[in-house]
Amino acid sequence: MGAREEARVWAGLALWTREFLRGSLPDMPHDHSDHDHPHALLPPEPALRVKALETLLTRKGLVDPAALDAIIDTYENKIGPRNGAHVVARAWTDPAFRAALIADATPLVADLGYYGRQGEHLVVVENTPEVHNMVVCTLCSCYPWPLLGIPPGWYKSDAYRARAVRAPRAVLADFGVTLNEGTAVRVWDSTAEVRYLVLPLRPEGTDGWSEEALMDLVTRDSMIGTGVVTVPE
């Protein structure tokens, strides 16, 4: 950072901190919200706020910027929905794997290399003609990171968190999905450290397909339950 940019960053953080802490950190811990929060002065843009915080923590010896790069690289380039698609395609082609997956997913997917932060306790729920599963976290944004990566914006949105439990069929319609008559919806609200992955129905017309070819059909949304797997025309 040049000197001018740095001065701007610090001025921005100072302004934001003053306003933010005034409201959010009164003397009593854990009772932050029962105060009026006059944001008379608009906080500066979040990019500056984050930059300033990173700079401060780095100077204090608490953060290594190269470690931040490594975390970002992991979730941008190494861990994503291909992992989940691999598990799904394997389950579609290997009945013994499928049975073991439904019985106890965590050790099984760990053997495939899919274990870690936000995937310590995995449960795979199977779609059938009778039941369609859908996953949400109404209280925050819990999501099976080792299988699907970082959740998409819509999964973390107020609209999804608010509506998925009360009106799952309307949410499915938002995604262009209509269920067959007679199919019930089971919504899993991830309120603990258990993470859920939906095993979608294998589409018709894929008999004899290889695991690799099937993987390409499996979308992220189908493993959250807001999509179904189809064969492209």
């Binding site: 979040p46 990019a47 984050v50 930059k51 915080l53 990173e54 923590l57 608490l62 953060v63 290594d64 470690a67 931040l68 790069d69 975390i71 970002i72 979730y75 941008e76 994503g80 932060r117 990566g149 970082i150 914006g153």
Partner: peptide, 17 residues
Amino acid sequence: VFHEDWQARALALTLAA
């Protein structure tokens, strides 16, 4: 995965802290 660079930094900072 991240729409803005600062969002990625925010996630990484949170994990590192």
